[in-house]
Deep mutational scan, measured.
Amino acid sequence: KELVLALYDYQEKSPREVTMKKGDILTLLNSTNKDWWKVEVNGRQGAVPAAYVKKL
């Protein structure tokens, strides 16, 4: 499985998103959308802005 690093804090704004903190390591589930990537963090799945994460 592919991992990404959170470059910034992000507070979810809808139920389809997830909150992450700078430095979090997230499991990347889907990166086909260039703006929003689906990730899993702390057992929750949701979208985060692609510009806020970097593939490891």
Score class of each variant (00 low, 15 high):
22 K>F: 05
49 P>G: 02
47 A>C: 15
1 K>H: 13
16 R>K: 13
32 T>G: 11
31 S>W: 09
38 K>T: 15
38 K>N: 12
21 K>G: 04
13 K>E: 08
48 V>H: 00
53 V>Y: 02
4 V>K: 00
49 P>V: 02
6 A>Y: 02
51 A>C: 15
40 E>H: 05
49 P>K: 04
11 Q>A: 12
8 Y>I: 10
4 V>S: 03
51 A>I: 11
10 Y>L: 02
12 E>I: 07
9 D>Q: 03
5 L>P: 00
36 W>D: 01
21 K>C: 11
10 Y>D: 00
13 K>C: 12
26 L>N: 00
45 Q>P: 07
52 Y>E: 02
18 V>C: 09
19 T>Y: 04
17 E>Y: 07
46 G>L: 11
45 Q>D: 06
51 A>P: 08
42 N>V: 05
8 Y>V: 11
43 G>T: 05
24 D>C: 08
40 E>W: 08
28 L>I: 05
54 K>C: 15
55 K>G: 04
14 S>W: 06
16 R>D: 15
33 N>V: 05
38 K>S: 13
24 D>G: 03
44 R>E: 05
23 G>T: 02
47 A>L: 15
15 P>L: 10
19 T>F: 07
29 L>K: 05
13 K>F: 06
47 A>Y: 15
44 R>N: 06
16 R>W: 15
50 A>E: 03
30 N>V: 09
45 Q>K: 10
19 T>G: 09
2 E>T: 14
13 K>W: 05
5 L>K: 07
33 N>C: 11
3 L>S: 07
49 P>H: 03
45 Q>T: 13
12 E>P: 15
19 T>S: 15
56 L>F: 11
56 L>C: 14
3 L>N: 05
38 K>G: 08
43 G>Y: 04
49 P>N: 03
34 K>E: 11
54 K>M: 15
55 K>V: 13
56 L>K: 03
43 G>F: 05
54 K>S: 10
37 W>A: 04
19 T>P: 06
31 S>G: 11
19 T>A: 07
3 L>E: 07
9 D>M: 04
22 K>G: 04
54 K>I: 14
50 A>S: 13
39 V>A: 01
28 L>V: 07
22 K>M: 08
53 V>L: 15
17 E>R: 06
42 N>D: 12
18 V>F: 15
46 G>H: 04
28 L>E: 00
55 K>I: 14
26 L>F: 08
38 K>M: 15
24 D>S: 07
25 I>L: 09
41 V>C: 11
33 N>G: 12
13 K>T: 13
42 N>T: 05
12 E>V: 07
40 E>C: 12
6 A>R: 01
47 A>H: 15
26 L>W: 03
28 L>K: 01
54 K>H: 10
35 D>K: 13
10 Y>S: 01
47 A>F: 15
40 E>S: 09
8 Y>M: 12
32 T>R: 11
55 K>R: 13
49 P>F: 05
40 E>G: 05
51 A>G: 12
46 G>P: 01
39 V>T: 00
22 K>I: 06
45 Q>R: 12
27 T>L: 14
22 K>T: 07
27 T>S: 08
27 T>H: 10
7 L>A: 03
11 Q>P: 06
35 D>Q: 12
5 L>C: 12
15 P>Y: 10
33 N>D: 14
8 Y>W: 11
3 L>V: 09
12 E>C: 14
44 R>K: 12
32 T>I: 11
14 S>Y: 07
41 V>F: 15
22 K>E: 07
9 D>E: 05
33 N>A: 09
1 K>Y: 14
43 G>W: 04
16 R>F: 14
21 K>F: 11
25 I>V: 11
11 Q>W: 13
32 T>D: 15
22 K>A: 13
37 W>P: 02
34 K>C: 12
17 E>D: 05
4 V>I: 07
13 K>L: 09
14 S>F: 07
8 Y>R: 15
35 D>H: 14
37 W>S: 02
27 T>K: 11
53 V>T: 03
24 D>Q: 14
7 L>K: 05
38 K>C: 15
54 K>G: 08
42 N>I: 04
39 V>H: 01
28 L>G: 01
30 N>E: 15
49 P>R: 05
35 D>N: 13
36 W>I: 04
54 K>F: 10
32 T>Q: 12
41 V>I: 15
28 L>R: 00
16 R>I: 11
11 Q>Y: 14
26 L>K: 01
24 D>T: 08
7 L>R: 05
27 T>R: 12
11 Q>H: 13
8 Y>D: 07
56 L>V: 10
50 A>T: 06
7 L>M: 10
26 L>V: 07
43 G>D: 06
51 A>M: 11
1 K>L: 13
19 T>C: 05
53 V>S: 00
30 N>G: 08
43 G>C: 07
24 D>E: 11
19 T>M: 04
34 K>V: 11
15 P>K: 10
1 K>W: 12
54 K>D: 06
6 A>K: 01
42 N>L: 08
21 K>R: 13
45 Q>Y: 10
23 G>P: 00
31 S>Y: 09
29 L>N: 02
24 D>K: 03
30 N>A: 11
15 P>M: 09
55 K>E: 06
51 A>V: 10
20 M>L: 09
24 D>R: 03
26 L>A: 09
8 Y>T: 08
1 K>S: 11
18 V>S: 01
37 W>D: 00
30 N>R: 07
45 Q>N: 07
54 K>Y: 10
16 R>N: 15
53 V>G: 01
50 A>C: 08
43 G>E: 06
34 K>I: 10
34 K>Q: 12
35 D>P: 02
40 E>D: 08
54 K>V: 14
46 G>F: 13
31 S>K: 10
31 S>C: 13
43 G>P: 01
21 K>S: 09
14 S>Q: 07
53 V>I: 08
40 E>Y: 08
47 A>P: 02
15 P>V: 10
42 N>G: 12
42 N>K: 09
18 V>W: 09
47 A>V: 15
29 L>G: 00
2 E>V: 14
34 K>T: 11
55 K>L: 14
50 A>G: 04
